[in-house]
Design a protein around this nucleic acid. Structure first.
Lengths: 237, 237, 237, 237
DNA sequence: TATGAATGAGCATTCATTCAT
DNA sequence: AATGAATGAATGCTCATTCAT
């Protein structure tokens, strides 16, 4: 199914085309998702990819699978990046810093992949994919190491890092379209300052593991249908 | 509750029903906006409010006006809260802390009011309202005072605070629906740590004023229209 | 139910108010029908009349009855006018001319009363009312006299006159809103020229009596529901 | 039928279905517009055409474009017809007569194209199309020639002809659905008699050129918005 | 296999009419 | 009796997904 390089010539030819289309679609979808959100019409994606909708649907049976696929490839890229960072940086904090900053290259994709109005979720998809596990493991390890070396505050866990990161990556305010390309880095830096040991404040709640964070990423709509006549107040607190 | 001075007690009655419905609608919309985003079907809002769509539309001629109304009232509440905080807390940092934490009561509303996929914006609406100006002024003053007293790092401005805040308030991950009601406070606290003087890192970019941040609150979709017939790939690079 | 003049004082008082409201409604509806067509929202009519919709509906259970009522009163006015014309003009052609021209005062009302997109019909309503009969009789008599005196071409009947008249009164083009107030008279005059004896051309078809014209004024929608899969061609000729 | 030159006979096939649907839609819309006005539900049009609404909207993004398309094709046909008439008839009056009568084939379409409650207008659309200009020119020329040859009264212009024509074509009374198919011709003939030289009466107002008439073809509703909160009565006087 | 046409459910909004006050 | 709030059916239009070519 994921047969690389050494394919027999006859079939390889056809597959090459299909592959190319798939890539075009992913590229188109990635940019459109970034620009206009995960709700862009499928037809617009197909158009930008230069294929018909039919082709798009042949590759990705529905929007969910397209979003998911993009999330996965993004994840792959992030994974690669964090591995490099870990391999090349002497200490864990350095690796973490580099990873967070460098992943900015993937910010737009991530922004929509990590969490989005539509409710698709990289983590949910990732959960069912080893890439995710790989990343989760590496990050967890990185966090442990950084805490061990005394650079990362002890009262946080991977989930916390991801939530803070997602907050910024998700926020359109942090991504001005004008010249200020360093804006995201500005906020990543602030977040790193928040995470630096020793934390100035005592944090309410408990450190959030990767697993803690995962379940909150629900499908499509985060709420459930409702038909109460009027009474209860869901906003509560 | 909102009965203007000179009216006899019994008179407001006729209006009472309408008033009640309006309140129910606002309550329903607030919770649904929070749970499922600003794009929830109007019909769902009406249903949760226990009224017909027609009634909803009688009160709010279109979605925009509903969102705006909620945003405004939310803004009023926030404004009141920050004023109280400023009045009662001895120092600026305390006021800031209290304001950010306490405004959690408004977190769900704020999350969608401050900025959202739908693109309606509290600030945009607020911008045309003194409430907004009031809040902007108070926050700016607060930031200045906090920096003067040495509690807030000097290399940030109101806009930065808002962006960090919006990031968290906007992030669904920070708002688990289960028992962990202290999660948002957890991240608010982390953000406060990031903002505390002296900042550990040198921040890229420039401090963002309120005015710097405002323009990024755009309409509808965060990207720009595109309709190229075919090839070009805006993401590639 | 239709108690005129000599009413007991007690009740008469209330009825005066009701009467006034009815008149206001008719006036408002007449002008709005003229300005914006028979489809104006009932609420707009009520607003212009200065009453609530409820009041409007108390007087006129539905739109049809309102349109009909206006048509009737318009008819009354036209009837009066034609009677005067007949009484004061020495010959039938003069009476006809004067009637057509003078009824221009009622043009806007007539325009919507005689025939309209909505399909309400003065004649249909009128048919069930003596006013209509009265007008039909007078016009028929007028036509006969005019033909007898040799001023009106012999190959037309009342129905033809009405159709031509309706055509012009119905046409927005004949009623510019600018200063050219004589435009309608211009076309009425042309129509009179068409009707003048002896007609230059031989007319296809038969003279149309009042009765011939009546049945074509149908209710609401002139066509019938349809669900043919596609085949037949309803435009036929 | 519309197969552009160089294509192999078999190729146009793929498009054939779409083409057929488009034609079905146009046919359905034309008849429904004629029967029930330009405001018929799009869904009814789709049903009569035997397609889904979606298909209709794929071909015509909104009602306006559908109306416009029909108006244009109608215009083309009328244009062709008038050209033929001019070419084949020896004198201008003959051409005019023949054109007006023969265009009856297009009467239903024209009735709604020329002007309608919905306010879409053939002329408005046509105005931006050479077809319109072409027709206007030809008619103007025809009028001039007819006046030169002494058959058309001198005190009218193209606009007058169109207004009279529109009046009749617009009037449902002139289009009985029963057997009397010659009714429209009957009134066209009467109108021609009204236009014949020398006019019996002196006409009020001035001859209307095409340009004079054009501006009266307004959008949507023929009247102006009104929104007075309460009292004033614009009709009273 | 690629295409793009067709489908129809979904959602916003309007407005005639009913009904509680 | 008057008011105007509430209702919900109707309608335009969009877009995900299916399917014929």
């Amino acid at each position: 199914m994921d047969n690389p390089a050494g394919t027999p010539r006859g079939t390889g030819r056809l597959r090459a085309d299909a592959r190319r289309n798939r890539d075009l679609i992913i590229k188109a979808a990635t940019s459109l998702f970034a620009e206009r959100g995960l709700d862009v019409p499928m037809e617009d994606i197909a158009r930008r990819a230069g294929v018909g909708v039919g082709t798009l649907y042949r590759r990705f049976p529905d929007r969910e699978s397209l979003v998911t696929a993009i999330a996965e490839s993004t994840f792959q890229a992030v994974l690669e990046r964090v591995r490099t960072a870990v391999a090349e940086e002497p200490d864990a904090w350095g690796a973490l810093t580099r990873f967070l900053h460098h992943s900015l290259e993937l910010r737009l994709s991530l922004r929509f992949s990590l969490s989005s109005p539509g409710g698709y979720s990289l983590l949910r998809s990732a959960d069912s994919r080893e890439a995710s596990v790989g990343l989760a493991d590496i990050l967890a390890e990185l966090v442990r190491r950084a805490q061990a070396e005394g650079s990362l505050r002890g009262d946080v866990d991977v989930g916390d890092v991801l939530i803070l990161l997602a907050g910024i990556l998700t926020s359109p305010h942090a991504f001005p379209n004008d010249g200020r390309g360093d804006m995201p880095n500005r906020y990543i830096t602030l977040i790193l300052d928040a995470l630096r040991a020793p934390g100035a404040s005592r944090l309410p709640g408990r450190p959030q593991s990767f697993a803690d964070v995962r379940p909150f990423l629900r499908a499509k709509h985060q709420g459930v249908e409702d038909a109460e006549e009027g009474g209860d107040d869901p906003v509560r607190s």
